[in-house]
Computed example of a mutant assay.
Amino acid sequence: MLKSLFKPRPAQTAGRALYARVVEQARSPALYRDLGAPDTVEGRFEIYSLHVVLLLERLRGHGEAAADVSQALFDAYVSSLDDALREMGVGDLSVGKKMRKLGEAFYGRGKNYQEALDSLPDRAPLEAILGRTVYADAEDRSAELADYVLAQREALAGNSLEALLAGKADWRAA
């Protein structure tokens, strides 16, 4: 009986599994080597955030189960950010402030990415947000990264909702 009380809900398990797929995809060397994403703390934050946003967009509007998985995915992402800050030596008293700033940054990017994706087929807004965020301190290769984003968006659209709700997401190779 106690085992069932502490067993994670299926949405939590799926959200964690989807975040693991985000991590795997965001760590693809091709993103950094071929597309010039900066291999820095900030660059990785941008790439991880971009992939989370793409999955959240795919799940949006598909009912309560998808909303629960989306929340669990976001929770896994936030927990990972918190863990990363602590591993980098950020003190307990500063973690809350830094997490709030990261949360605000994520929500702003999510909103901007959604607006850019909603404006397709005009790619200019997508390339602009990629240039301002991912390539803020690097050579701007936003047109190439936009191609990647659109390919990943298409790949996620090809994933069945049932697979995503089970924590399985297939990305295209970077």
Rank of each mutant, 00 (worst) to 15 (best):
E57A: 12
L85M: 14
D137E: 13
R132G: 09
A157M: 03
R27A: 04
G61N: 03
D83R: 15
R123E: 15
V149F: 08
E64T: 11
E127S: 01
R27G: 14
E127H: 01
D170S: 14
D68F: 01
Q152I: 11
K101Y: 07
D137S: 11
R141M: 10
G110F: 02
R27Y: 13
R132C: 05
L120P: 06
H62W: 02
D170V: 13
A138Y: 04
A174C: 13
G89Q: 09
K98I: 06
E154W: 09
L145G: 01
Q25T: 03
R100P: 12
L145I: 09
S119R: 14
A65Q: 15
S4W: 13
S142F: 02
S80D: 15
A166N: 14
R141C: 12
R21L: 09
E87C: 04
E127P: 03
A105Q: 08
L50T: 00
N159A: 02
L35P: 10
L2E: 11
L156E: 07
K97M: 13
A169T: 09
G167F: 07
T13S: 15
W171C: 10
A105E: 07
L161V: 03
G63D: 07
L55M: 14
Q71T: 12
R16D: 12
H51Q: 13
V41H: 01
Y113H: 09
G63Q: 05
A128I: 03
G103D: 08
G36Q: 01
R44A: 00
S160M: 05
D92Y: 07
A105C: 02
Y77D: 00
D122W: 02
A65E: 15
Y19M: 05
P8M: 08
Y77W: 12
A76N: 09
G167S: 10
N112A: 15
A169P: 14
A138R: 07
D122F: 01
L81E: 01
Y32P: 04
G89W: 08
G36N: 00
S160R: 04
D122I: 02
R58W: 08
L2Q: 12
A136S: 11
A37K: 02
R44F: 07
A116W: 05
A138W: 03
Q12E: 14
R21T: 11
I47D: 00
S4N: 10
Y113D: 06
Y113W: 14
L35E: 04
R9W: 07
L120E: 05
V53A: 10
E87I: 08
G108K: 04
V52P: 02
G89C: 12
E87G: 02
E144S: 14
Q114S: 11
D34N: 12
A169Y: 09
T133M: 06
L117F: 14
E144M: 13
V78N: 03
S79W: 06
Y19R: 05
H51N: 11
P29A: 01
D137Q: 13
E64F: 09
G63R: 04
Y48C: 00
L2G: 10
L145R: 02
A138N: 05
K98A: 03
K111Y: 11
L50H: 03
V41W: 00
D122E: 08
P29V: 00
D34R: 13
A173K: 14
R16G: 11
Y113Q: 05
Q114T: 11
P38D: 01
G131I: 06
A105D: 08
A173T: 10
G63M: 06
D122R: 05
Y113G: 05
A26H: 01
F45M: 13
Q114P: 03
A20K: 06
T133P: 00
L120S: 03
P125A: 02
D82M: 07
